[in-house]
């Protein structure tokens, strides 16, 4: 058989597989977006027509608006704390040799492998016991959720920031000091700008993982104090309709926009 024909075939089969896999992973996202514009309340295909009504409906359902506000606050605060503490830790982990360094590195990354539902259960019981003994209520509070979500944002930050720090050629810092910059100036003017890509990526991933987290959060919310993904989950256990599609679509658009904005500063395809 002609080799170029065979090569051709191989290439196109491979491309077809890639296309199908992408279609598969994008299918739910595409359809939920489409349905949020359907005019009929009972979902059926093809739709009778299109409307923007459901987006207004979302606003009237206070549980989504409150969940959205809660998720935003939690994600923002958890990101802020996680990125700050995680970055400081990363600097120490990459730039210093000290006893227990490996252990601490593993400890800081360990939340990535502990199942969210298990960690959530442990934290739920812990919070309730704290309340029992110290009368300090953490379950179903903003503080409690932020504390829990810092567990998500620290490992992401450590992972991404250590990677970007390791990639920095130390002779560049030596050059800055050789030119008369002191340590703080060297950090501020040379090291920090070079690790900016890692920091931006860490902030994005921290924010998003916190925002969309479900398993860890499940037991830590309460009536009236719930996050958006849990509000969606609870609604979905009850029914699927264009309103919930509209809520989902808002989350998709928000996260897509965040990714696009971040991609302008840092090439996302290089950090993941």
């Amino acid at each position: 058989m002609n080799v170029y024909l065979a090569r051709h075939w191989r290439r196109w089969t491979l491309r077809a597989v890639v296309l199908l896999v992408y279609l598969f992973i994008l299918t739910p996202v595409i359809f939920i977006g489409w349905i949020s514009f359907f005019s009929n309340e009972i979902i059926s295909f093809p739709p009778d027509g299109y409307t923007l009504r459901w987006f207004g409906n979302v606003w009237e359902q206070r549980v989504f608006a409150r969940g959205f506000a809660m998720s935003l606050q939690v994600a923002f605060l958890a990101m802020l704390i996680g990125v700050t503490l995680g970055t400081l830790a990363s600097i120490a982990l990459v730039r210093y040799r000290f006893p227990g360094r490996e252990t601490i590195n593993m400890l800081l990354l360990s939340p990535l492998i502990v199942p969210g539902i298990v960690a959530g259960t442990a934290l739920y019981i812990f919070f309730i016991e704290i309340d029992n003994y110290m009368e300090w209520r953490l379950q179903a509070t903003l503080e409690g959720l932020v504390m829990a979500h810092v567990m998500l944002t620290i490992p992401w930050t450590v992972r991404l920031v250590t990677a970007s720090l390791v990639g920095i050629d130390r002779s560049i810092e030596d050059a800055a000091m050789n030119l008369g910059a002191n340590r703080w100036t060297t950090f501020r003017r040379v090291t920090f700008p070079m690790m900016r890509a890692g920091l931006v990526a860490a902030a994005l991933f921290s924010f998003i993982t916190s925002f969309e987290n479900l398993e860890l959060t499940l037991l830590l919310v309460g009536p009236g104090r719930t996050t958006l993904p849990i509000a969606i989950l609870q609604y979905l256990e009850f029914k699927v309709d264009p309103t919930i599609a509209a809520v989902s679509f808002i989350q998709i658009v928000l996260i897509g926009a965040l990714m696009l904005i971040t991609d302008r500063f840092v090439k996302l395809s290089r950090v993941v």
């Binding site: 299918t27 739910p28 996202v29 595409i30 359809f31 939920i32 925002f211 969309e212 479900l214 993904p229 969606i232 989950l233 979905l236 699927v240 919930i244 599609a245 989902s248 989350q251 998709i252 996260i255 897509g256």
Partner: peptide
């Protein structure tokens, strides 16, 4: 985008 939204899809 998150698991819940994709499950809805």
């Amino acid at each position: 985008v998150g698991n819940v939204v994709r499950a809805a899809g």
